[in-house]
Design a binder for these strands. Sequence first.
DNA 1: TCGATGGATTTGTACCAACGAATGGATGAT
DNA 2: ATCATCCATTCGTTGGTACAAATCCATCGA
Lengths: 251, 251
Amino acid sequence: MKVARSALYQQVASELRRAIYSGDYGPGAQLPTEEELRQRHGVSRNTVRLAVAELVNEGLVTRAPRRGTIVRERRALLMHPQRELQRRPTGEPREAFAYAVSQEGRAPSQHIDVLALVPAEEIASRLELGDGDLALVRRRLRFVDGQPYNTNDSYFPFELVGGSEIARQGDIKRGANRVLEELGHAQVRVVDDIWARMPNQSEVDRLQLELGTPVVVYVRVGYDRSDMPVRVAVSVLPADKHLIRYELDVS
Amino acid sequence: MKVARSALYQQVASELRRAIYSGDYGPGAQLPTEEELRQRHGVSRNTVRLAVAELVNEGLVTRAPRRGTIVRERRALLMHPQRELQRRPTGEPREAFAYAVSQEGRAPSQHIDVLALVPAEEIASRLELGDGDLALVRRRLRFVDGQPYNTNDSYFPFELVGGSEIARQGDIKRGANRVLEELGHAQVRVVDDIWARMPNQSEVDRLQLELGTPVVVYVRVGYDRSDMPVRVAVSVLPADKHLIRYELDVS
DNA sequence: TCGATGGATTTGTACCAACGAATGGATGAT
DNA sequence: ATCATCCATTCGTTGGTACAAATCCATCGA
């Protein structure tokens, strides 16, 4: 007698979910093998795999041959978007990301590509560029403890930064924002847009994302004193590793 | 001759992904039926379903019997967490959410449950409650144009608001923050934490989420003049419908 | 002792078959 | 013309089988 209020695989998934959330399987624990679940619930292996696939898509577990199905653990690193605008301690030679990460006792590194291009419409409109105008982009892939961590692509109007240090390959130790200042276009106002979505394939590859990990997209547009956009920074942050924090004073 | 650099279902998924991103299938368009894809790629239906499942998990498409596989469209509504702290126009009778939504020409509504309980550890620690201390929670499920839109659970120290309007069922037209003010505990500082994850089952149910939709979790802790936490608001925002925006002045 | 090797285990991919559930659209009745 | 009904289509669920790929671990050899 079946009292199937929902699909079998849903029932199996619920049972596993409950067990995980209740702590029966803590982070790092291995769930029963597919064969074991098959017998325990009296269903086919297809059904078991469908159930576990749900948990994978929810980001709860990962699977690997022979290793089995493992409960994931997550440790997020705190981001303070506001602090990136503040001056770091005098003499601090590193830019915002490197500084923040090493503050938490972890080892930052990054890979930078610098190139000029006609940006996508979304970027162009935020930078208020004309049709076909060039932008200079600094594409960063950042690592923490050797693992890919996030990406940060910063776009500048080419006209503005073409001849400056920003257009040169490699690190700018004191930070691009400092260079903008020196060019007379310090950012006095920024607008941050934050949303989330599932990653596309190239993001999965670049950031070595596991299945079921959404990404937070974080776009900052910086404006100078004359309200001209001088920088558009697009960050793609794997959701399981990032926590964004803002502190606001009520004025 | 097979040049299978990756799994068959991955190849089919890539092909579909490419077609969607290139605009061959715009929002609302129906992908070929499973049977059609099966024939076109010469694979089994299971393999086709695996491929399409990938797109579903990426939030690119939805499936329904007889309707087929449809390319999703997304329209996000802008949130301004800062504005919720500002006074709304004098005489404006609605609270922040209702005001913001109707500003965009859409129809807000909500359902509120008010209850007292011993909150989960995460909430308790943010509210700096002792062990077993009660909190008052106002649980909101918000709708836009009749569709579930997001949830917002606001926790207050019971000690603080037990006898006030906050503890009564139903709407507080002028907003709970106003009541806090009147109680002498106006929020002068807030800390916003933002992250993302895949939704759990109860969230999928309450918010009628489609598969492959991550949620943004947005936690605001408000402190009064003596730096006591007086409110913890936990919002769960379906990622495809929300865009969070902050505007910061560089001081 | 330490490294290479191979077997066993566990998930990954792929195919086939059958029936259920939902619904768009055609058909027929009023 | 309008509404109810029925059918065909399309996805949803579940069962089965077979072999591939990855890797843990025990065993064997130097």
